[in-house]
Simulated scan of single mutants.
Amino acid sequence: MINRDDLGSWLEGPRIDREDGDWPGRRLGLPESGSHSLAPAWRRLLGLVVDWFMCLAIANLIGSSNPFLAPGIFALEHVLLVATLGYSVGHRIVGIEVRRLDGHVPGLLKSLIRTLLVILVIPALIFDRDNRGLHDLAAGTVILRR
Rank of each mutant, 00 (worst) to 15 (best):
Asp102Trp: 01
Asp102Met: 02
Asp102Gln: 04
Phe74Thr: 09
Arg129Trp: 10
Ile62Pro: 12
Gly34Ala: 12
Gly72Phe: 02
Thr115Val: 02
Leu81Ile: 08
Gly72Cys: 04
Ala83Thr: 05
Ser35His: 13
Gly25Tyr: 13
Val94Ile: 08
Leu112Phe: 04
Val50Gln: 15
Val98Met: 05
Arg44Thr: 07
Leu45Thr: 14
Val49Thr: 15
Gly34Ile: 03
Glu32Leu: 04
Phe127Val: 05
Arg44Phe: 01
Phe53Asp: 07
Phe74His: 13
Ser111His: 07
Phe74Asp: 03
His78Ser: 03
His104Gly: 14
Leu56Thr: 07
Ile119Ala: 15
Gly103Asp: 00
Ala70His: 08
Leu38Ser: 06
Leu38Val: 14
Val121Arg: 01
Gly29Phe: 12
Ile119Ser: 01
Asp128Ser: 01
Trp42Pro: 06
Leu112Trp: 00
Leu61Val: 14
Gly86Cys: 12
Arg132His: 03
Arg26Tyr: 15
Ile119Arg: 00
Gly103Thr: 01
Cys55Asn: 10
Glu19Phe: 11
Pro106Arg: 02
Ser35Thr: 08
Arg43Glu: 07
Lys110His: 05
Val98Trp: 00
Leu109Tyr: 01
Leu108Thr: 11
Asn66Val: 05
Ile73Asn: 13
Ile16Pro: 02
Gly47Glu: 06
Tyr87Ser: 11
Ala75Trp: 08
Leu46Lys: 08
Gly103Arg: 00
Ala39His: 04
Leu85Gln: 10
Gly95Cys: 03
His78Gly: 10
Gly95Gln: 04
Leu69Gln: 06
Asp51Trp: 09
Leu117Gln: 11
Ala59Lys: 08
Leu109Asn: 05
Ala39Gly: 12
Cys55Ile: 06
Val118Thr: 03
Cys55Gly: 01
Val105Leu: 00
His78Trp: 00
Arg114Tyr: 06
Arg114Gly: 09
Gly72Gln: 01
Ile16Asp: 04
Val89Thr: 03
Phe74Cys: 01
Ala59Arg: 09
Leu125Ala: 04
Arg100Cys: 02
Leu69Tyr: 11
His78Cys: 02
Asp51Ser: 03
Ile122Asp: 07
Ile113Arg: 06
Asn131Phe: 09
Leu125Met: 12
